[in-house]
Nucleic acid binder design. Structure first.
Length: 632
DNA sequence: CGCGGAATAT
DNA sequence: GATATTCCGC
């Protein structure tokens, strides 16, 4: 290739350009054999390169496997195993591929549904050649828009290398888009002159290695190269490490400006505020893989260590969790933006006028949305509550009332609705059935990691058994009555976890779980969609793959935590950026034009997760409602 | 030259 | 905001 003369190359490019629609790799899905055959003939007639599949699941498998690349998917709407809409949905979430729906049903509603779900076209059966002749346009236009949106970057998320899983090849630092031949060729050839290194994604695993290395070397003696050596990850360079180290140091500095890495000192410091270090704000698509056993190693908190490891084998975790020697609090502390999102409010919960928080904490809280005291105070309040004290003064935790601090909208209050989701409302009363601790609890979950808190992906706050225990004793996360109307009510006194399956009567959970592909999180959860992810997890309603064990963990995570045992997720899921995924749009399909904002609800409904009852409404309201803030 | 680290760019 | 790249003193 290198030997190829510019001339020759140009000619080839031209040729490829000219023929472009030819050889378009089309994946056609239709359970009707005849239709499929016809379709194939037509596609071939158009000189495309069709791959025919009879069911959506197979199609999805192929797409995911990525062994063959496709330019476009053509799918029938009505199929037994998984209908076209669902397929469309999943493709939309997982990859960036134009999907065209086929249907005999020209019902406007159906068409709209398709379009709303991101279909780029909706063809009526029987399909005609001339219609198929044009489908390549969708491919082209998509490519163009992508080219624009990624202008200047030759590193797309799809291509993003995951050092942890990357095949070693030190020379492969350059990103190569072998994938897309037809269009990207030019660029990749050009790239040989100006290449950027692969953007390293500092996954938790990677970060853990990093920390391990630092731990071995000693924070004061670390140097990029040493770390690099110890980490022993092929695709990393000293620059990568240096960059990360830089960030890490900055972080440490923030956490404890005058500390040189003395963990014990940090431990005792009231300034020991953890912030998310690895809060990943890059929106990515996540796919859930059952790979790792996210292991959390308590021994990292041992006397000899300063660093702890993260549990989550994925993304965006609190890097901070590593150093603090163990305080759960900070993990429980709501991040202001998250809470806001969570509550659908403009205003973070600030009036912590209980005399517990000091100014520093308050500042810390408002600034960094962190603060040990917050949780401590919450705990205190919760204890009060559990002793029978009126929860009313707890309200102040969630409202912006008085206290001289907080400011805006003193009228904002949050109400707990059903599953405990907070609602902002004008009314100023907390319904009698509301149990504040629940709020807290939810907040906790919501906060514990920057991303979806997987059911058993317990926040790395092991380490402070005491406080956890205290917390745990008072607050039991999800004691959920079977009565749907009070789903999510929490009884602070009752420490018996109730199986999530009881949350919603019947097998809905199961249905739902199946409804979504195991690999996919229904909400396309990204790094900082905490509220969504958390709620889902909190309620477990949308559990992504579960075992009774994990359910238990979830329901009773507090307890699990307090044991300090290894929080493992067995066959559980971890999030990883999708290899074939699109870019941006990690979050609820809010920002990608590809996916409509309505989607989650549609998804829920369409996938019959829930009947359209309160729960659905609630989810809709809270997750995609106008108030929902998906991205801080 | 190569490194580490800070500054700056993407 | 995360990571890459550049700059600079050693």
């Amino acid at each position: 290739m290198a030997a190829m003369g510019g001339n020759q190359r140009q000619m080839m490019e031209d040729a490829a350009e000219d023929k472009f629609p030819e050889g378009l790799r089309v994946l056609a899905v239709d359970n009707d054999r005849v239709c499929l055959k016809v379709l194939e003939v037509l596609l071939r007639h158009c000189k495309y390169q069709p791959t025919m599949v009879m069911d959506a699941k197979t199609a999805l498998k192929m797409l995911r496997a990525g062994k063959e690349q496709f330019d476009l998917v053509l799918t029938d709407v009505r199929m037994p195993d998984m209908d076209g809409f669902k397929l469309l949905e999943l493709i939309g979430l997982e990859m960036d591929l134009p999907v065209i729906m086929l249907s005999v049903d020209c019902d406007k509603k159906a068409v709209m549904k398709g379009i709303n779900h991101g279909a780029c076209d909706y063809l009526m059966k029987p399909v005609h050649t001339n219609e198929l002749k044009n489908i390549w346009q969708h491919v082209e236009s998509r490519r163009r828009s992508q080219a624009i949106s990624h202008m200047g970057r030759d590193n797309d998320d799809d291509q993003r290398v995951h050092p942890g899983t990357l095949a070693k090849n030190k020379d492969s630092k350059r990103k190569s888009n072998e994938k897309d031949s037809s269009n990207e060729n030019k660029e990749s050839t050009h790239a040989s002159t100006t290449h950027k290194n692969t953007r390293v994604k500092w996954t938790t695993d990677l970060h853990n290695k990093f920390l391990e290395a630092i731990n071995q070397i000693g924070l004061d003696k670390v140097a990029p190269n040493k770390i690099l050596e110890l980490m022993n990850v092929d695709c990393l360079t000293r620059h990568n490490i240096a960059s990360h180290l830089q960030k890490y140091r900055l972080y440490l500095n923030r956490v404890k400006p005058n500390s040189l890495g003395d963990a014990s000192e940090r431990q005792n410091s009231s300034m020991d505020n953890q912030r998310n270090f690895m809060h990943n704000h890059e929106h990515e698509r996540w796919h859930v893989s059952s790979c790792g056993i996210p292991s959390w190693s308590p021994n990292y908190f041992g006397a000899t260590s300063q660093l702890g490891q993260l549990t989550d084998s994925q993304s965006s975790l609190c890097m901070g969790s590593l150093i603090h020697g163990g305080r759960m609090s900070r993990y429980l502390v709501p991040h202001t933006p998250d809470v806001r999102r969570f509550a659908g409010s403009e205003d973070p919960p600030i009036s912590l006028d209980n005399g517990i928080l000091d100014d520093i904490m308050l500042d810390e809280f408002s600034t960094y949305s962190s603060g040990t005291s917050y949780v401590d105070s919450m705990r205190g309040k919760l204890m009060e509550t559990s002793k029978g004290k009126s929860p009313s003064n707890l309200r102040s935790y969630f409202t912006n009332t008085p206290s001289g601090r907080g400011s805006s909208a003193p009228t904002n209050e949050y109400q707990v609705n059903l599953t405990g989701i907070l609602h902002r409302g004008g009314t100023s009363h907390v319904p009698p059935h509301v149990n504040i601790p629940r709020i807290n609890q939810l907040t906790n979950y919501e906060t514990s990691s920057s991303g979806l808190l997987l059911q058993n992906q317990l926040p790395p706050f092991i380490g402070n058994t005491t406080s956890v225990t205290g917390f745990n004793e008072q607050i039991v996360p999800f004691n959920i009555p079977t009565n749907p109307s009070s789903v999510g009510m929490l009884n602070a006194h009752n420490s018996t976890p109730i199986a999530p399956s009881q949350m919603f009567s019947g097998g809905r959970i199961t249905t739902l779980r199946e409804g979504f592909n195991e690999k996919i999180s229904p909400f396309n959860i990204a790094s900082n969609t905490s509220s969504v992810g958390t709620m889902l997890n909190g309620n477990y309603a949308l559990g992504i793959g579960s075992t009774s064990k994990t359910e238990t963990n979830m329901v009773n995570s507090g307890r699990t935590i307090s044991t300090g045992s290894n929080l493992q997720t067995d066959s559980f899921v971890t999030l990883t950026p999708m290899p074939g995924g699109g870019d941006a749009a990690g979050i609820l399909p809010v920002q990608e034009s590809m996916v409509n904002q309505q989607e989650p609800s549609d998804l829920l409904n369409g996938i019959n997760a829930f009947p359209s009852d309160d729960i659905t409404n609630l989810l809709n309201n809270d997750f995609i409602g106008e108030d929902a803030v998906m991205d801080g």
